[in-house]
């Protein structure tokens, strides 16, 4: 701090807290990575590759030009794979590790074969 000088112990604490916010950017600062804020470094810093539907621009996914789903440039069924593969959001797919390892076996390409996906009963 340039214009203020910490005098008592509490001011010293505040100074230590705000000083990192004041340092000019050098370009060496680590990237801001979701879910990794605070605390000591948990793992070596690596380039961060954003994943997930909210980070990828994928037009024509939710609705077509008429507002319906008939003319989507990607089939709605792609959601099924994009969410659980790309977006660590597996709640809507069967448990592939334990109970249904083969549920997509007959589905080579989602756009064409989605009707062949097995229905899995828990």
């Amino acid at each position: 701090m340039k214009h203020l000088k910490a005098i008592n112990a509490k001011a010293g604490l505040i100074e230590r807290l705000v000083t990192p916010l004041e340092a000019p950017a050098t370009g060496d600062e680590p990237d801001v990575v979701a879910l990794q804020g605070g605390g000591p470094p948990q793992q070596p810093q690596q380039p961060h590759i954003p994943l997930g539907c909210s980070l990828v621009f994928s037009p024509g996914w939710e609705a077509d030009r008429t507002g319906g789903t008939a003319g989507l440039c990607q089939p709605v069924e792609r959601d099924l794979f994009d969410c659980h593969i790309g977006c660590f959001w597996p709640a809507h797919v069967p448990d592939m590790l334990n109970h249904a390892p083969d549920w997509t076996k007959k589905c080579a390409a989602a756009q064409k074969d989605w009707r062949k996906i097995d229905i899995v009963f828990p």
């Binding site: 214009h3 203020l4 000088k5 910490a6 001011a11 505040i14």
Partner: peptide, 11 residues
């Protein structure tokens, strides 16, 4: 915060 700071002219 119950803190005491010295001020320069600007502050």
């Amino acid at each position: 915060s119950a803190s005491v700071f010295g001020l320069d002219d600007a502050a």
